[in-house]
Design a binder for these strands. Structure first.
Lengths: 332, 332
DNA sequence: AGAGTCACGGCAATCGTTTGCGGTACGATG
DNA sequence: CATCGTACCGCAAACGATTGCCGTGACTCT
């Protein structure tokens, strides 16, 4: 079928070793023969067999990426940047989608682990101990989750959250409702904590509803609950929930941005598709992805596979759009 | 590092061949030894090396999937269903995103082709001849594009488009504007043709604007053009464009669903997030994905690698929501 | 009892690459 | 002229799994 090293070697009257060296270790072989080999290899359309190479090198030149839900607009930008960065470094990317099934997460990761050199887990929800253990078995980088003894890339929601609260306060709001994400989600806790801190610092009352799954439908459910709560400002766990809320509230005749203010988190491209557009805390998704790849490849190269646990923190900031406005005189 | 066949064999006092057979060809070996081997293998945590297996079998148990843009909500459902179906059949999925760069499409596909048994190309925009040639080199299934001599799964927009036109006509519209997708896009031509046919059959005047890239931003641009055209009903190439149009029109103070009607295609989950919600032609995305995998694996199994070119056609239908309404008395 | 059958499992070749260990030929050096 | 160094390249052994072929032993049938 495919052209092999041996065929190229035969066509050049040299041994396979020489061809191999010529193509991977150019200095090790005479310049003249090297160019000859290179030419013939190209002519014959030679491409090294991944399998053969893997077998002896022990590497696969592939990284795995596990995400909870490709359809959640938060992840595509991350996936894209992971792919782009990996491709630059000659790595392929295997993707697995857990469909938000926490139970499948480890299983999928383990499955991938056999065919990749390293893994990136985005927003995992598996128990910490399991993740630590996984990270001891092969190079892993966690995105949007800090794990003991492992490397991770996370976002620092403090800044953005503080801006969000100050923004609402400046509009006259004194009471904010947090629409919580999945109960055991690490980033939900981070966000809730950041919000609590910001509220405390600004003397704002904080309420909470939820938990909600990060899906539009759940956001619609949240909207109905929100209407019976006495608040005029809500910060949602993520954009999807926020969008669901807006959609449902609008449908029920409320004027988002006037009667009630809504803030999302992620600043996904969808933030601009609604009317009014969604005020959201911007998360640098592309950087999340590329930083994760860098951290991972770093780990792979150094051989120091369990290199110093590092946490890269990326900043967030508030992007103000139309879904937030001055608090109504009477907070309902 | 990893447990090998040889280690399992040693632990069982049998040869590697026996272990291999016990695990892959259960009938070929004595029930008693088989269970013993299975037990030991599990205990030792044995997992076959993909590389070793590939080398001798020539297969990789991996399929490649090339999509134009993961961030386009049309594709995640397809990706998901491809993955799910592939996983069922013990195949891994390598994904590549062309970022809408037509030029990279073939290159990415070729790159993948070395490490997969077969390819699925979703909505490719490469020239037909190239695609035909690609399909001769390895098993390929095309999604959302018909290619000479190759297998593909496409959608039949005729039905949905006819429903859409009839729907608009029943609301009093006599003039429809098509917001075209990328000029050389195959599905754009399909959709335009289907629309033209439906319009002719219903004695409706058809205008056209574009081309537009399938992105929200482009839709916003379309909206502004639309306002200076004398139409009160538009059918967009896809939901993203339609959503961009709605968003921008609403922002400019128009009442979508009253002053102007908008219809999208794809019926992506986002259709429900806007207000009013987007009337859209539903495309069975999940079926597209799983049908593609079935077609591909079929091709792989039969060895008849260039099996009969088949085209699977999936039906579409209109989903009516709030973005369409009765035509205003004076079409502006 | 002898021959044939059958189930089971081992041997060894094979897939395509990489790489340590030498071997060869050449030029340089004393 | 002999010795040594060096640059280049070939040999062959891995890597881990699969599989055709054959040997062994037990059983059956006549």
């Amino acid at each position: 079928m495919a052209v092999t090293l041996a065929e190229v070697a035969a066509a050049c009257n040299v041994s396979t070793s020489t061809v191999s060296r010529a193509l991977t270790d150019p200095e090790k072989v005479n310049a003249e023969t090297r160019t000859r080999i290179e030419r013939v290899a190209r002519q014959l359309g030679y491409a090294p067999s991944r399998a053969g190479r893997s077998l002896v090198s022990g590497r696969t030149d592939t990284v795995g990426l596990v995400v909870p839900d490709i359809a959640n607009p938060f992840f595509p930008p991350i996936i894209k940047s992971v792919q782009a960065r990996a491709r630059d470094k000659r790595y392929a990317v295997l993707i697995a989608d857990t469909d938000e099934h926490v139970a499948d997460e480890l299983e999928l990761a383990r499955g991938l682990s056999r065919q990749v050199d390293g893994l990136i887990l985005a927003s995992p929800r598996t128990a910490p101990a399991e993740l630590t253990r996984l990270a001891q078995q092969l190079p892993v980088v966690f995105v949007n989750r800090e794990v003991e003894g492992a490397r991770s890339v996370v976002i620092d929601e403090a800044e953005g959250m503080q801006e969000a609260v100050e923004h609402l306060v400046s509009l006259g709001h004194r009471r904010i409702c947090y629409l919580a994400g999945p109960r055991r989600s690490w980033s939900n806790q981070q966000r809730r904590d950041a919000l609590a801190t910001a509220c405390a610092a600004n003397d704002v009352e904080l309420r909470e509803l939820g938990p909600f799954e990060p899906q539009i439908q759940a956001g619609m459910r949240a909207a109905d609950l929100l209407q019976s709560a006495e608040v005029a400002a809500a910060i949602a766990y993520d954009d999807l929930i926020a969008l669901g809320v807006m959609s449902r509230l609008t449908e029920r005749g409320m004027q988002v941005g006037r009667e009630i203010s809504v803030i999302g988190i992620d600043d996904s491209p969808l933030s601009t598709v609604t009317h009014p557009m969604l005020t959201s805390i911007h998360v640098p998704a592309a950087e999340l992805g590329s930083a994760a790849v860098d951290l991972l490849l770093d780990q792979l190269r150094d051989g120091a596979e369990l290199g110093a646990p590092t946490t890269v923190k990326l900043e967030t900031r508030l992007v103000i759009r139309g879904s937030t406005g001055v608090a109504p005189a009477d907070p309902r």
